[in-house]
């Protein structure tokens, strides 16, 4: 890694709030600017917990170790502060917000990034939104729909990518964004992510997935395999292929405590 990491996770132990059990049992990870790291692992290995702890989900707590983002202690920040600092999580199951249009939501999100008393220019916003939707090949009417309300699985994921495109994060954490998508929807998501990376080569991506499939569309620099709350192997894209051939069971056996 040439640059100092944008995301540095050290010895992270974490679990569900109000439960004693640690799901993450000491995770170390360093993600440099512009890098794509994939986190793979079986169900229950802790990969989604890692995403939620990074985003600051109130249902999860870090109990040891540290998470630094751009040199700052991420664990000390509220979820909204993390977002404004440049962290974006694409949700596995995005919430529905009835009555709130995507455009209004994004406008409010950008307004939140301004100083008190500073007003977002609505004309500039409209222009940005249109330009972003064009980049992703979306119909302009999409932004008038209410956030995830009655959306199909594919539409929800496209909405996540649109938000990412508008908010332009430094770090995108994609929590099983590929799960439940058919191949067409997966390609739409992958094209969006790749277009954003092309536009901003500094954007780092932490891609959490159960399947190798997505990695042929969004090619990672590094693949980490998580089993039982620990990273048991890290390597190039070939690790994902190996995993696909062997299955998680081999890893489980090999790394059983």
């Amino acid at each position: 890694m040439s640059d100092s990491p944008i995301l540095a996770v050290k010895g992270l132990r974490a679990g569900v709030a109000d439960e004693d059990l640690d799901i993450l049992k000491g995770v170390d990870l360093a993600l440099g600017p512009g890098e794509v790291h994939a986190i793979m692992g079986p169900n229950g290995s802790g990969k989604s917990t890692l995403a939620k702890v990074i985003a600051g989900h109130p249902g999860y707590e870090a109990r040891g170790g540290s998470v630094e983002f751009g040199g700052e202690d991420l664990l000390e920040m509220e979820p909204d502060e993390r977002a404004r600092a440049g962290v974006f999580m694409a949700f596995q199951y995005p919430a529905e917000i009835p009555g709130v249009s995507i455009a209004n939501f994004l406008r409010t999100a950008l307004q939140s990034r301004l100083e008190d008393g500073e007003e977002l220019d609505l004309f500039d916003f409209q222009e940005l939104l249109m330009e972003r939707m064009e980049l992703l090949g979306m119909d302009a009417s999409f932004a008038e729909r209410h956030v995830n309300d009655g959306f199909s699985g594919g539409e929800k994921k496209r909405n996540e990518i649109l938000q990412m495109a508008v908010l332009k994060p430094a770090l995108a954490v994609m929590d099983e964004t590929d799960s439940g998508l058919d191949i067409d929807a997966l390609q739409v998501v992958a094209r969006g992510v790749n277009a954003l990376r092309e536009e901003n080569p500094e954007m780092s991506v932490l891609l959490i997935t159960h399947y190798q499939r997505v990695l042929s569309h969004i090619v990672p620099d590094t693949v980490h395999v998580v089993v039982d709350g620990r990273i048991v192997e890290s390597g190039g894209p070939e690790v994902a292929l190996e995993l696909e051939a062997q299955g998680y069971e081999e890893y489980r056996k090999a790394h059983a405590a």
């Binding site: 993390r82 949700f91 919430a95 529905e96």
Partner: peptide
């Protein structure tokens, strides 16, 4: 709570997120 977290994860302060949910709810 999930809806609030979702909005906050996009940078909205808690009060602003709550406001938006209420406005959306009544806006129907």
């Amino acid at each position: 709570a999930e809806a609030l977290f979702y909005l906050m994860s996009r940078g909205l302060e808690r009060e602003r997120a709550e406001r938006l949910v209420v406005l959306g709810f009544l806006g129907e």
